[in-house]
Design a protein around this nucleic acid. Structure first.
Lengths: 205, 205
DNA sequence: TAGATTGTTAATCGATTAACAATC
DNA sequence: TAGATTGTTAATCGATTAACAATC
């Protein structure tokens, strides 16, 4: 990284570029251009070049970008050139769907544990995982040294669970609960709330 | 609405305000200020006042905003002062989780049909819904006059299904498939891809 | 009234786009 | 070489913040 402080809005676009590049690679393409990539993701070619050039000179004039090389660079930049362990908290319908989702492993993530506070669920299986008791969560996460959690508990419990997660050393939370979390700024939160996404579209209907 | 063209970035924050306000209302609060609301959602008070004032003068100097009134106004602005019918396409784990999600009804949405192209799933029940055949989808959506769809099919099928949905008159797609969709600009797409959200956080770890 | 808070203006800050020399 | 496309600069555009008169 040669630049010092990259705006978050740029960081947010890199995973979208990476996803599109991996898709192109799966289709057998070897090189691409800012033009072509831009059309695929709906972003201007100039912006893509500018975003990428924040981190180095990864392209070649006249020919564009090697897809394989650019993927490698983006994975390093985003720190997904490794596998991050994650936990899921909340084994409801959403927790089940997330636990069964097959798309994490080749994007840099691996689920290692699932917790729920419902004693009747503890011990049950989801795929190859056994649901663990929330009471043991903090110590378990500490011993596993996990930094990323997915939160699929009811909104009413989300903040309390988030506080526990942070106490256990978690630094990134993907929050499926429909509520804004209060966290210090060394902890990152991303929100997945289908209603919020839908309401952002109804305005235009 | 007294302003002409509201930036999309403002529209995107309104559902977050609305969610927080409804939460405050559930807690029994009657009024709030831009300061308090801002602390809850992590946005500056000035920005909240500016955003809201794009649409009218909904507050009172000295006392702030009536939560009930501001909720009513935001729901009107976002057009969720009504119930929007939606369909789900793809009855896998994610389709099941979304179909069973209880949070839509009091946010302005109602699921009316679920489709899958797997004949062995067609006819099966998810809650009170019966999975319908994708082959009948276009005509069924037309006759139901549905404008919003949630797409939970594999990435490889997503674009083709999206094309069908648009043909059926769908104008807003909540896309759970990890791929960028190509749509004309009278159709809105929102993306829910957990890996992309996670990769946006790993950069900071 | 005195205190609080809005709505709005102007200033600042940041992001996007257009254009093009460099060069593969 | 000629054509294509990058990386980068400068110009433009848009969003955020600070400040404060208005007023409840």
């Amino acid at each position: 990284m040669n630049a010092n402080k990259i705006p978050d809005i740029i960081i947010g676009r890199l995973p979208v570029y990476l996803r599109a590049l991996q898709h192109m690679q799966d289709m057998g393409l070897k090189t691409t251009s800012s033009q072509e990539l831009g059309e695929r993701v709906g972003i201007s070619a100039a912006q893509i070049r500018k975003d990428i050039s924040q981190f180095g000179e990864f392209g070649k004039q006249g020919t564009g970008y090697s897809i394989e090389y650019l993927i490698k660079q983006l994975r390093e930049i985003l720190k997904v050139d490794r596998i991050w362990d994650m936990v899921i908290v909340g084994a409801g319908d959403m927790g089940h769907a997330v636990a069964n989702y097959q798309g994490f492993s080749d994007r840099g993530f691996s689920i290692v544990a699932i917790f729920d506070n419902d004693k009747s669920k503890v011990g049950q299986k989801i795929g190859q995982f056994t649901i663990e008791d929330s009471e043991t969560m903090v110590n378990r996460i500490k011993s596993l040294d996990v930094k990323i959690a997915m939160l699929s508990v009811p909104a009413s419990a989300a903040q309390a669970v988030a506080d526990q997660l942070m106490q256990a050393g978690v630094r990134a939370i993907l929050n499926y609960a429909p509520i804004s979390l209060n966290v210090p700024n060394n902890v990152k939160v991303q929100y997945i709330d289908p209603s919020t996404h839908l309401q952002r579209m109804t305005y235009y209907l």
